[in-house]
Design a protein around this nucleic acid. Structure first.
Lengths: 152, 152
DNA sequence: ATTATTTTGCTGTACTTGCAATAAAAATAT
DNA sequence: ATATTTTTATTGCAAGTACAGCAAAATAAT
C-alpha cells in the first residue's frame, strides 16, 4: 500500500479547467488568465497586487502585468492607499464589476461539473483533503520562491 | 449543505507545484514546462505529440513546440513511424533518459509533501475522488477545445 | 476507386509568464 | 534619529502558450 500519485491528476485537471475558462471568457474579451485576477479583485476590493500574487500562487511580476492590463482595459482601477502610499489598492470599475456575475456563473458551473460524480459528502471530503494538500504545498512554494532548497 | 469550491484549490495547488518544479529543474537546464513532456516520453517511448498533448491537457501547438525544443536540446528524438509515415514517434536519447531519475525523484518528493498530512487511506481516497473529477472535467475540456459550448 | 473527413504536424502572430534587477516607501534595528 | 532590512511596484529581457490557418498523410464514406 504505497502513496498514490496525485500531482499529475491535479495538474491535468487544473490545466483542463483553466483552458476551458480561457476559451469561454474570450467572449467577454478577457485573454488568458485575466479572469483569475478580476474575480479576486471583485471579491476583495482594495487588495494589493502583491497579496493577489501570493493568493494565486503566481509570480509577482506576472500578477503585476495582468493587473496593468486590466487597468488599461478599464476593468479595474489602482488607488494609492492613504495610510501607505507605497501600496496601490485595486478596485473593480463599474464595467469590471458587471463582468463578475458571468465569471462566477462559469466558475460555479465548472465546479458542478467537476463534482458531478461525487456525493455532497464526498465533495466536502475532497475539499478538506485539498485544503491539507494546499497547506503543505504552499509552504514549499514559499520556500522555493524565496530561493530555498528542498531536501531530496 | 452546498457544494464546496474545489476549482480554486486545485488551481492554486497546481500552480504552486508547477512553479516549484520549474525552479528546481532549472538546475537540469530545463525551462518552463519541459519536465512534463520529457517525463512522459521517457515513460511512454514511441508516443506521438498529439497524444502527449491530449494526456497533458495542453494545446497541440504548445506540445509541438515543447517537443521541438527537446529535440533541439538533444534530449529526445523523433522517428517517423514505419506503419504510419505521418506519425512521428518520440523517444528519449541517452542524455534525456539520464535525466529521468532526477525528474522522478523530485516528483515523488513533491507528492510526498502534498500527502504529508494525509493517512495512506486518505491519500487513496483523494486519488479516487480526483479520478472522478478528472473524467468529468476532461469531457468538458474536449468539448470546449473542439469548439463546443457548455450550457450555463 | 474516388471523394470527403479526420488526424497529425507545423508555422505566423500575438499574447502571457517569469527571472533578474531597480527604485521607492515603509518597517525594523541600532 | 539614522541605518538596515523588508515590502511593494515596476521594467528589461527571454521564453512559453495558444489561436488561426496550412499541408500532408491516413481513414472513412460513397
Amino acid at each position: 500500500m504505497t502513496q498514490p500519485d496525485v500531482l499529475r491528476q491535479i495538474g491535468t485537471i487544473a490545466r483542463a479547467l483553466d483552458a476551458i475558462s480561457n476559451v469561454e471568457f474570450q467572449a467577454l474579451a478577457l485573454t488568458k488568465g485575466q479572469y483569475l485576477y478580476l474575480v479576486r479583485i471583485c471579491e476583495q476590493p482594495g487588495i494589493i497586487t502583491e497579496h493577489l500574487a501570493q493568493q494565486l500562487r503566481v509570480d509577482r511580476t506576472t500578477a503585476n502585468r495582468a493587473v496593468q492590463k486590466l487597468v488599461t482595459q478599464g476593468l479595474i482601477e489602482k488607488h494609492a492607499a492613504k495610510i501607505n502610499r507605497k501600496n496601490k489598492e485595486l478596485f473593480p470599475t463599474a464595467t469590471g464589476l458587471a463582468r463578475y456575475p458571468q465569471l462566477k456563473r462559469e466558475n460555479t458551473y465548472s465546479n458542478q461539473v467537476a463534482l458531478a460524480d461525487l456525493s455532497i459528502d464526498e465533495a466536502h471530503q475532497l475539499a478538506a483533503l485539498l485544503a491539507k494538500v494546499s497547506e503543505r504545498v504552499t509552504a514549499d512554494w514559499t520556500t522555493v520562491k524565496q530561493g530555498g532548497h528542498r531536501p531530496y
